[in-house]
Design a protein around this nucleic acid. Sequence first.
DNA 1: TCGATCATGATTAGGAAG
DNA 2: CTTCCTAATCATGATCGA
Length: 596
Amino acid sequence: MDGNASDGDYGDIDWDTEDELEIQGGIVPSSCANVVAPNAEAVVTNGEASSSAGPLNSKLVQDLLGMGFSEQMIAKAIKENEETNTELIVESLLTYKALEESPDELNSVPQQQHSIDNGVGQLSSDYDDNFLDDLSEPLSGSDSEIDEITSSLPKYDKILLSLANMGYSIEEASAAMDRCPEASILELTDFIRAAQMAKADDIFFEEEKPKLSLNEGLKKRKLYELAMRKTKKRKGMLTEEDEVIRLPNPMIGFGTPTHSLVVTHRMLPDEAIGPPFFYYENVALAPKGVWDTISRFLYDVEPEFVDSKYFCAAARKRGYIHNLPINNRFPLLPLPPRTINDALPLTKRWWPQWDKRTKLNCLQTGIGSAKLTDGIRKALEKCRDDHEPPLDVQKCVIEQCRRWNLVWVGKNKLAPLEPDEVEMLLGFPRNHTRGGGISRTDRYKSLGNSFQVDTVAYHLSVLKDIFPNGLNMLSLFSGIGGAEVALHRLGIPLKNVVSVEISEVNRDIVRSWWEQTNQKGNLIHLADVQQLNGDLLEQFMSSFGGFDLVVGGSPCNNLAGSNRVSRDGLQGEHSSLFYQYPRILNLVKFIMKGQQ
DNA sequence: TCGATCATGATTAGGAAG
DNA sequence: CTTCCTAATCATGATCGA
């Protein structure tokens, strides 16, 4: 049974679905089969609504009604958009629906007394700009110095260095630069990628060939042409603004357990279609253009941006690029607490009325200082006991609470979260990162760099039906094993896991978890993604039949907004390791193709 | 040397106001 | 449209004491 599980398991997944048939279907379960094609083309699959006469585009209205939207919403959406632009109308409807179903900010406020819902107006009318101490006026637009530091290097060397930094070999890089002398770095990497793919083809289809020369072949030519086409596209007058990826609002991706969306299918570029399945993650609020680049390297798959505040009591805005099916997702049970109140019940007693937070902000790698919380306590103690503190004090305190994710643990007493609490909020088992000689500082760091398990598990849940006997996973930048924990909690057996993680502390955590949960499969640990080459991959894959899933969240150090020192984007010292992900993924993809 | 502690803004986006 | 405000943000490096 298990012998060739991979082949069998793929049985009901249609990797080769034609693009034309990919559709957006309604969540409305089985009773309604009306669907709308994404590109302004309505398709009715049960002919009932075909010939009803109506004032507007009645067919469209019927379709939308069938998708579960109200007449009012549809009318509003059509009015706000061009009647002919189906895509925009559907998008508007989705937004309305998401807003309508968003219970968090409105309904979760426990007592909706007289003037609570007017808080915004109150704030603005009572607004007082006498702040405590900081009235810093930032001089905007002071100077626009462009750092010319790197210009001292010859251009050729500079580019070569960048490419080497991305993990490409000097040979690859210089070969590409010889072929395309005037190309940009992006174009060069496209070229190298194509060359790597061609090389992989050569390795597995013409085994005897020497590997040094870039041989021509159908596949390579095709890829080369594709890279060149992209080049032309960029050189043409297409403004770059058009390709900038924007973050959705609300940030719910293709849907969450509480915000079911209508989108249950999507179009995937041919190149993205597996095997293997892949799942890539990074911070949503990266510098401009970063996600465009990431997406370009991952077959132009559109990122799914999700804020984990729709899964748990803490925000976590992340982008995920994957080729997983997106219909029939299901959440981990039990559902985690979704408000601070429910997640940290002991804080309720001390939570002042004027702190309106119901969700925590992003859990980061560091915590607020004791000096800060102590200062706030002293400031609050000066206030009258029977009165709320002055509005300017409130404003200042709340600002610090939001900045440092402080919670109320006593009268006038604020505190940062405990590692245990962060563990819980992120969906890890209790004490997951505790013990084994791990310092408290390192716990915060490891947790702050991790997945939110419920969020990731929701996306990965579709794998349960596809791999009922378990799967083989390649886990890059594993950290403390967020993906592994998610799959385990989903009840998906882990057969072979190759986990690559640079931090020994984190590897210890995962190994310890692996043993404690009585895993039946094999865990193989590597330290450095840069040393994971084709030969090594081939060894692994030939021993257990290829990877079903490649997961990874590459370092965000140089992308994250909290970084004051080295927010250098994708070329940063650590974040440039991103390029290892597509490199390895492409290798896996082509080894899989060779094995088939 | 290790761990705990703490000070250190900028880059985005979005909305309101002009 | 521009300008100004609010808001959020998987961090780094220096220092100190054990």
